[in-house]
Write a protein that binds this DNA or RNA. Structure first.
Lengths: 208, 208
DNA sequence: CTAAAACTGGACTAAATGGTCCATTCCATT
DNA sequence: AATGGAATGGACCATTTAGTCCAGTTTTAG
């Protein structure tokens, strides 16, 4: 699902790749903290220490850069989550996963929200390609959660007929909603509460 | 909690009030569908059929207009929800409430998301006053849900020691996360699933 | 070593945008 | 009917922004 960062038809030296990466990481950071619309290309130029012509050398325009940022953020989140969820196979493990997310979001008091969620909210209705990419990334993330629930099933913790996909969607909903509420309150408590409720429900399906 | 739309220190004729309202409703619509950042004042001027000087006569600037839009959207949502939740006092009633929200969001295939949620996501980290207003609106909305759960308690459906505030936060999280996922997928199914899980959990606390 | 390709910096432009100003008209109050 | 504040239209302005161009430098490959 992850789109390749590099455009197909051009040669790219190591030096160029570094420049390109520098642009993307700077843009990712800015667009996460300020929002896509509020981030100008001049901001990106200043933050990355790259000239404007280079920006246009590597990206067709702002839309293309935004899409690259989405790919990059997506890869970052998915990699992190793949690692975090890889060996989780218990409710307690899910709770530790939740703790890590909340703790991580607490350092900024919930500000900026979820890296993918805030991009989605801003971009979904204005760039259909970006929307679909983000939709795929959410699906991938949910897939990782579904794997965990599958392992819970294998371990006999969850019944075989547990509706894994629905549970996964519900868990992701609670997570995203939690991020948004934390962002609005500048307090991570509602995020913790929201995810907790989803986990409680999943746990309640086990203890039968 | 709702802030008054009119600024305190100035006289306002009926005609002026109408103009002011026209500006706000046009801006509310545009900012909901296009986003705050992507809505220009010229857009608002064109859509409301009002001159720019009028816009600046009634609002100190874009920020002030955005805040008025937040107040207006907030009032709209809270009024709608107050009415929708007023007499709900059963799980079935909550499910009907869910159905109505989902059906309503389905007409646009989930696009634009929650009127308050998308404003919050875009504005929370860039205007602290707006953020606090939105935070208050969410609290008000959650209060309406808490009232419903209280009635469930009174009816004996929910146990007396049910943690109403946590449940309310979880429900709002599922709702907001559902809106976001529906917006990203352009499909309301995940929204329905997400809220369902929260309601299932609440229901599970009853059947003990 | 050399030439082409890749890369770089920064000046430049056209359009858009938030915001200002002012001359004129409307309207409530006395 | 007069008066002053409210309302209005629209020209105007400074700045910002996405996007262009090009002259010059560095890297790569033969």
């Amino acid at each position: 699902m992850t789109t390749v960062d590099e455009p197909a038809g051009r040669r790219l030296t190591e030096r160029g790749a570094k420049t390109r990466t520098r642009i993307i990481t700077a843009a990712t950071d800015l667009m996460y903290t300020r929002g896509v619309g509020a981030t100008t290309l001049d901001d990106v130029v200043a933050a990355s220490g790259v000239s404007k012509s280079q920006l246009y050398h590597h990206f067709a325009g702002k839309d293309a850069l935004v899409r690259a940022v989405i790919d990059h953020s997506g890869k970052r989140v998915i990699d992190r989550e793949r690692e975090a969820l890889r060996r989780v196979s218990s409710i307690a493990g899910l709770r530790r996963w939740r703790d890590a997310l909340v703790r991580n979001n607490a350092v900024q008091h919930g500000a900026y929200g979820c890296a993918l969620g805030s991009l989605a909210s801003e971009v979904a209705d204005r760039d259909d390609v970006a929307r679909q990419t983000l939709s795929g990334l959410f699906a991938e993330w949910e897939g990782l959660l579904a794997d965990v629930l599958g392992r819970l099933q294998d371990a006999g913790t969850l019944p075989d007929d547990a509706p894994i996909d629905e549970l996964t969607t519900g868990l992701m909903g609670a997570l995203q909603g939690g991020y948004l509420m934390a962002q609005t309150a500048h307090d991570v408590t509602p995020m913790a509460t929201s995810i907790d409720m989803a986990l409680n429900y999943i746990e309640s399906l086990s203890a039968e």
